[in-house]
Every structure is written in structure tokens, then in C-alpha cells.
Design a protein around this nucleic acid. Structure first.
Lengths: 243, 243
DNA sequence: CGGGGATTTGAGCGCATTCAAACGCAGTGG
DNA sequence: CCACTGCGTTTGAATGCGCTCAAATCCCCG
């Protein structure tokens, strides 16, 4: 099935009126710039649960900002092996890895019914000439993605299963908190298998580790509903494991 | 021409005369643009073996392009744990992860006596306004770094020791080849421990895997001198392992 | 209410790790 | 010239964490 939806003018949105602007590309722009930035007529696009926003190998033309919903990005190698490289929630950008090659390097799949803003990369380039701040901001976002990836590399390269899951949950909670949601009660949008793929673990290990955290009183786990009971305890697992 | 700090002319270098320009930031610039780009008076800086170009936490002000030599970047977490996040050779950029936060997020250490070009990020921003191509190129480089990191994440998350080392060696060989060096005879600039840190393995495992590759006729290993005897065999390890 | 995917839990195994010891090599000083 | 030292590397043996295989259970959704 195709995720594409016929686009109507009614779906156009502007950054200046978006309640996600503090989390999204326009961060750091002056109010004036932001108003003028609305020349960048953003098109909204809906992606149903399970739908693909783009696929590995598709030509890169746009960045996508998540307005609502939740995505995963998957890297697939030539053989069957594939891996989740990230989860994206409201305000986060998708498609950054396509800039370098002109081709998307991952699949982007909606884990729930979602909406994104389609940001033409060509237009961004042109507007960047007028708004140095915007240019700068794109640099910053790209750079932060690199920093984020380094964090994942540290996780994958030197943490044990419990530490990985603890770090994952804390990161998720922190991002939810930044969006005004509860940072202790979270509903996981992804399966155990997808968590495992992201963390370099098998789904059984993820499940077992959830159970262990529950036994230890760190979490209350009911399928995909997670309540964090001892945030400090999780943090200790991540930091203090080397001691 | 602006007032300049008294820097010995001998240390000034220009991109247009650099034999690394095809591998470095100016890739894709027209000849004219390249000539004008020399306004960006690059300063060369020497870093002795073991010296730190910058440290995690240092304020970010410049990007660095490796002219000669070899670097590693290390991510250190609050506890003792630290991890090598990458190795950089001639033509590759260092410091990209500092753009987002204004602070370097890794240590950059020279693994042999090296020279770098110091590229003021402020100047890059200004020149980017005049040379859209340069701006684009920086985007591409940042994006490619993200793609590279995704590759490492795949490696760390889903490969076994042999596959990791094979992928590492092939990547190194390919980069050396692009620089005109032999792609079959390589001298490792890093220790087994640093390789292991990068690959998420212990140094003993790295050493054992080297020995195994030698027994199998894939490599000739003499300490840090490696000769690749069966490139296709290594490639098979990386790709076909899932089958 | 039934079917199918997701999750949980158990048992046994294997790969990478840990701990330990020996070796090679470069640099230093007697 | 050789002994000595320090560091990196190699190799061995035993351990353990996460994986594989398997079965039972839960839950969503038609």
C-alpha cells in the first residue's frame, strides 16, 4: 500500500503558526525572519500507521518535520540484515542523511498515524541565502544528529543490555518531557523487536530486561505502557555501571 | 584583504593549491569560486603524535581538515567508559559535532605526527553566503558523516567480531585507495585496543580475529603491518554473514 | 469468539569476555 | 653490547551474557 495522499491546498501550514516551532527547524529565528519564512509554503502530508514516508534508495528532495505521530528509520544492508537507526517524534527532522548523496539511505516508517511537514531542500537552500540564521540552524541540526549518533555508538559499543535499555527509556522520557508530556508514564509506539534492533539486542533480551526492571521496582510494565518508578535508579544503571 | 594576525606566511595555505582539494571541503566548487575562496586564509597547524587537537568540552570555533597524518576521535562518558568514534585521515574533517552545541563533543588525538588546516567556522558561515556551493558542500559533508555513523551503528548493532573487523579493514583500505595508497598493504596507526574500542570489542578479541584471518589466508599480519591477501573473502564475510 | 501477532518465560548453547601468562619490540642506561 | 623496562600483542582457559530454539500466554482486532 502507498502512504501517499493527494495534497490539497488546505493542508498548507506555516512555521510561524506552528506550535512546534520551538522544537523544529525554525529554532533561533527572529520573529521577523519567521514571518518572512512563511514564503516557504510547507505542505502537510499524512502517513498512516505502517506507511512509508520514504524508502532507502528513493531520490532525496525534501526534509520532513514530524508534526504529529511517531516514526522509525531503518537501515537495510544488502543481505537480509536491517537495523532501526532512530525513532522520531514531533518536531524532529527526517531525511537528513539524504543530503549527502541525493538518495535516502534509510526507510522512514510511521509507527502510528502521523503528519509531517514537507520541506523542499532546494527551497531551504535558496532561503538559506536570505536567512543566514536558517542556514546556521540547519548546520546545528545536522551536527546534533551526529552527536546523537555518537551517543548511540557509545551505547552499542560499550553498554550491556540493562544499561542500553535504561539509557533508551531515559532518552525517550526526556524527549517526551520536552514536548510537555509526562516523563514517567510512556506508551511505547514500537515493538520489542524494534527496540531490540535499535539497541543491538534480540527481542527476548529486551523483554527479559523489562521484566527484570519491574522485579527490581524500577518500572511498572504492562505491555507497551511503561511507568518509570525510579528514574534515579535507571540513571545509576547508565552512569555507574563502569564503577 | 583584512587585517591579519601576524602569522608566518609559510604556514598559510590555500585550498586552490592543495592536492587534497578533491577529498576535502572544496569538493564541487568551480575553479573561479575556488580561487576566490582563498580569501579564507587557512592556517596550518602541526599536532605531534599523541597530541590533542581539541578536547571534549573545549569551545568550538573551527573545523579542522587533516592535511597529513592520522587522528582518532574519542567520546568519553561521565564514568570512565570511553569509546573511539572514528579515525580520520588526509582530507577528512574534524570537529563537525561541535557545530550544534558550540562545544566539542569528543577528543581529537593525533595517532602520528600530523598537520591540519584550521577553518574558522565563523568565516565559513560568512563565505557560505557568497558561495552557495560551499554551503551546500558543508551540508553534504555533515550529512555524509551521519550516513557513516549509521554504518557504524549497523556494524555495532548486528555484526559479529569477524564481520566487524573485516568491514573495518575494507573501509580503511578503500579510503587509502582513494588517496592513492596501496589498498592491500596497510600500516595500522592505531593499537588493538583502539580498534577494539571503535568496533565494540575487547583488544584480545581483535588480536584473536587477526590471527584467525591469517590462518584462513585472508591476511598477512605482522604487528601493525597488514597485507590483505583475499579482499573478496573479507567482503564475503561482511555481506554474506546473514545467509 | 476466534485468529494471529506480540510478548513473556524457560532451557541450553556459543561467542566474546575476563583473567592470566608469555612473548616481541623499542627505548634507555649501565 | 647486553640487561632492563614498559608497552603492545599474542595466546590459553574458564566464565558469563545474550542468543537460539521452543512453548505458553496475552491482547488487539476483525
Amino acid at each position: 500500500m502507498s502512504a501517499t495522499v493527494p495534497i490539497a491546498d488546505a493542508l498548507k501550514v506555516s512555521c510561524s503558526s506552528c506550535n512546534l516551532r520551538e522544537l523544529c527547524l525554525p529554532v533561533g529565528l527572529s520573529h521577523d525572519d519567521l514571518a518572512r519564512l512563511d514564503e516557504l509554503k510547507l505542505v502537510r502530508k499524512a502517513v498512516p500507521r505502517g506507511g512509508e514516508l520514504f524508502r532507502c534508495g528513493d531520490r532525496f528532495e525534501s526534509l520532513y518535520a514530524v508534526r504529529t505521530g511517531f516514526f522509525k528509520t531503518c537501515l537495510g544492508s544488502e543481505d537480509g540484515r536491517d537495523q532501526v537507526t532512530g525513532f522520531q517524534m514531533a518536531g524532529e527532522l527526517l531525511g537528513l542523511d539524504g543530503i549527502g548523496t541525493g538518495v535516502h539511505g534509510v526507510d522512514a516508517v510511521a509507527l502510528e498515524d502521523s503528519q509531517v511537514c514537507v520541506i523542499s531542500y532546494r527551497e531551504i537552500g535558496e532561503l538559506g541565502q536570505q536567512f543566514p540564521q536558517l542556514q546556521q540552524q540547519l548546520h546545528r541540526i545536522l551536527s546534533r544528529e551526529i552527536v546523537r549518533d555518537h551517543g548511540v555508538m557509545l551505547l552499542l559499543g560499550s553498554m550491556r543490555a540493562e544499561e542500553r535499555l535504561a539509557a533508551f527509556l531515559l532518552n525517550l522520557a526526556q524527549r517526551l518531557k520536552a514536548r510537555g508530556f509526562s516523563s514517567t508514564a510512556l506508551v511505547l509506539r514500537m515493538t520489542r523487536e524494534e527496540i531490540g534492533s535499535y539497541l543491538g539486542l534480540k527481542l527476548e533480551t529486551v523483554s527479559r530486561t523489562f521484566s527484570k526492571f519491574q522485579e527490581e521496582g524500577l518500572l511498572a510494565v504492562k505491555q507497551r505502557d511503561i511507568r518509570i518508578l525510579d528514574e534515579a535508579g535507571l540513571q545509576r544503571l547508565v552512569n555507574g555501571a563502569g564503577c
